[in-house]
């Protein structure tokens, strides 16, 4: 925040009046270019500037959150009036959507939360281990056919799931994995999520190579370099992987719908959909209420996990 004005024509600006500045014939970019200079002239203190930043972030955040707030507010309205009275402020707080939604499906909603949690935990663990290993190989090791394998890896995420799901179903059905969590977890343990391999490759490649070369000279093998140097220094990447896997698995609808056939195995996204029926009446209120409930865990995971996102090497002081 200690920027110094470097514009050579800064002095000419001091004479421009406000009226002149908004003359319509002036282009928007010209006006915009001046704004920082004008602000600097007034010598805005760091405190005011922070306040402005807070206000901007809050204001913008409110716009971003409007749909969410509407959902929150609607979750407190009786199902019948959600559409008749779509205002943001509910006329009364009614918790029946929460109590009804919690028990509306064959099992209490906690059952579906628990199923989702199992799938999510397995996926996070799987992705963290398998993807970071593969990424280390792609980022740091030299082996024959590396570009080709890398290309193949990227290719595996370029096909839409809708044409893969049926062969997958047949495959898992032959393995008798249908209606277990295996089709959702085992692939993660086998690094089938190329997104995260690529992500970690990019982060590993951003780490200074001198580090592992020095370790190599000290006689460290790849296993130790990976465990002792790469992983600790890639905490942000690992946190990103964990958070994303968590959220995407938590929200993933299609594959969970197809692979889990019995209601006792259903996860949150499938349970949420069963509140709706396009052909007769839908329980929007309970849907909103349970959506809020299912957002709470991911919100806290993010709130807790985000501090690891910013624990990069810059803060740990190496390099």
């Amino acid at each position: 925040m200690t920027d110094t004005p470097v514009r050579p024509d800064a002095h000419t600006e001091t004479t421009t009046t406000t009226a002149q500045r908004i003359r319509p014939e002036r282009t928007l970019s010209e006006v915009a270019a001046e704004v920082p200079d004008v602000r600097r002239k007034r010598r805005v203190g760091p405190r005011t500037r922070r306040l402005i930043k807070h206000l901007l972030l809050i204001g913008f955040g409110l716009i971003m959150l409007y749909p969410l707030l509407w959902m929150l507010s609607s979750s407190f309205k009786p199902n019948e009036i959600i559409f008749r009275e779509p205002g943001l402020i509910p006329s009364e707080i009614d918790l029946t959507n929460y109590t009804a939604g919690w028990n509306a499906l064959l099992h209490p909603f906690s059952h579906y939360l628990m199923n989702s949690a199992i799938v999510v935990m397995g996926s996070v663990l799987g992705n963290l281990i398998s993807c970071s290993m593969a990424a280390y190989a792609f980022a740091r090791l030299k082996f024959r056919g590396r570009p080709l394998w890398f290309a193949i890896m990227l290719m595996t995420i370029m096909l839409p799931i809708h044409v893969i799901i049926v062969p997958q179903y047949i495959l898992f059905s032959q393995l008798e994995w249908i209606n277990t969590f295996l089709p959702l977890i085992v692939p993660k343990l086998l690094a089938t999520d190329a997104f995260f391999i690529f992500l970690m490759v990019q982060f590993f490649r951003g780490l200074p190579k001198e580090l592992d070369e020095a370790a190599r000279l000290d006689g460290c093998g790849h296993g130790r370099i990976f465990l002792r140097i790469m992983l600790p220094l890639s905490l942000p990447a690992l946190a990103t992987t964990a958070i994303f896997t968590f959220i995407w698995t938590w929200n993933d609808f299609f594959s969970q719908l197809i692979f889990l056939t019995r209601p006792d195995m259903y996860t949150v996204p499938i349970a949420l959909r069963t509140f709706l029926d396009a052909t007769s009446n839908s329980s929007w209120g309970p849907l909103f209420a349970m959506s809020i409930v299912s957002l709470i865990p991911i919100f806290f995971v993010f709130l807790f996990g985000q501090k690891y996102l910013v624990k990069g090497i810059a803060t740990t002081g190496i390099k």
Partner: peptide
């Protein structure tokens, strides 16, 4: 009797897939 229920949209995707898979 094992229940197998979904919403209207998901129902048809799932039915077609399970038929394709022989289930």
């Amino acid at each position: 009797v094992v229940p197998d229920f979904t919403d209207w949209g998901g129902y048809w995707d799932k039915l077609a897939t399970t038929v394709a898979g022989g289930d």
